[in-house]
């Protein structure tokens, strides 16, 4: 992994959060009310449910993403594409010899498509399942859609799992840049809410949908930098926070945490000389994208600050896996 990468730009598709400045405010504001929507899964035994969620989020595709051939692209891939197409990249990113990578994290991509194929296989004759749903039913729809639609010939990687996947996506992008497999990277994460995803939703959190993307480059210099990615267990991660906080020269100006466990946030925040923000409290449960939004949120807070700022982004999963990253501005 290189010592650090620079953030060139960001693209967001989040419920009622237009840009980084709005994201920084949202993290500090009281949680917004969630709109109640009805979710159904036709041709299954799942009863419709009503649930307050953050969303829906409209893709609002920029012209760069093109318009033809998008009719059968899943909603989550459209959100991913829209956020990626809105992310400022280097001018050379679209030249044939460039190897800008696409690295994406999602817990939900392809889930409604997989389930719909199963519902069709249950009710239709063999061979009548809609073929177009098949390739869309894996996890890699967003990365593939971004890579193909934006013509990026670098590596194309997808991570899934819980919140740490969102930070691991950045770690793997930094690895691809360090090895020379990629000249730069578009790294992003996304989530959608469907009747299917709600079967695994956590009662105490507001399910949310959306996408976010960062353009990362190897160059150091002014602007926002990402460095010191650590992927370890909760004991080591907690030690990192406590040790960093103990000395003024290493002390961060804040901590952004993605976790399902509000009690853990309170425990880590208690007695700290810096503010602690909780992604899921402000933005809802976005699965793997929550970890990624801890980094984007930290970048937004750095960008909103008037002096050089250093913020730690941390993702913690219920199993104890963690990933953390230092976000700083100069």
């Amino acid at each position: 992994m290189p010592a650090s990468v620079a953030v060139r730009g960001a693209g967001l598709r989040l419920s009622e959060v237009e840009d980084l400045a709005a994201l920084a405010r949202r993290l500090s504001d009281a949680p917004a009310p969630a709109a109640v929507r009805r979710f159904a899964a036709p041709d299954t035994v799942l009863a419709p449910v009503e649930r307050g969620v953050y969303g829906p989020v409209e893709p609002r595709l920029p012209a760069r993403a093109g318009s033809r051939g998008l009719r059968s692209v899943p909603h989550e891939s459209l959100l991913a594409l829209a956020s990626a197409a809105d992310t400022p990249t280097r001018p050379e990113a679209r030249t044939p010899d460039d190897t800008t990578a696409v690295v994406w994290a999602s817990s939900t991509a392809g889930l409604p498509e997989y389930a719909t194929v199963c519902a069709e296989a249950s009710t239709l004759d063999p061979g009548f399942v809609a073929p177009a749903l098949g390739p869309a039913s894996a996890y890699n729809g967003p990365a593939a859609t971004v890579s193909i639609r934006l013509g990026l010939a670098g590596p194309n990687l997808t991570l899934t799992g819980g919140a740490t996947a969102g930070i691991s996506a950045i770690a793997e992008a930094m690895r691809l840049i360090a090895t020379g497999d990629a000249s730069a990277a578009l790294v992003g994460a996304s989530a959608t809410v469907t009747r299917w995803s709600l079967t695994a939703a956590h009662d105490h959190l507001t399910p949310a949908e959306g996408a976010a993307c960062l353009a990362l480059e190897p160059s150091a210099g002014p602007g926002i930098q990402l460095r010191e990615c650590q992927r370890t267990d909760l004991v080591h991660a907690t030690a990192r926070v406590i040790q960093a906080a103990a000395r003024p020269e290493t002390r961060p100006d804040g901590l952004v945490i993605s976790t399902l466990d509000a009690g853990l946030v309170d425990a880590l925040a208690s007695g700290q000389p810096f503010p602690v923000w909780h992604v899921e409290r402000s933005l809802g449960d976005l699965g793997a994208a929550g970890g990624f939004l801890a980094v984007v949120g930290a970048a937004a807070l750095c960008a909103a600050a008037t002096s050089p700022t250093k913020i730690l982004a941390l993702a913690v999963e219920p199993c104890g896996s963690t990933a953390s990253l230092e976000v700083s501005s100069s």
Partner: peptide
């Protein structure tokens, strides 16, 4: 016991 990264890759 996993005390390092736990990474699930699903690129196809």
């Amino acid at each position: 016991t996993v005390d390092g990264p736990a990474v699930l890759l699903a690129p196809g």
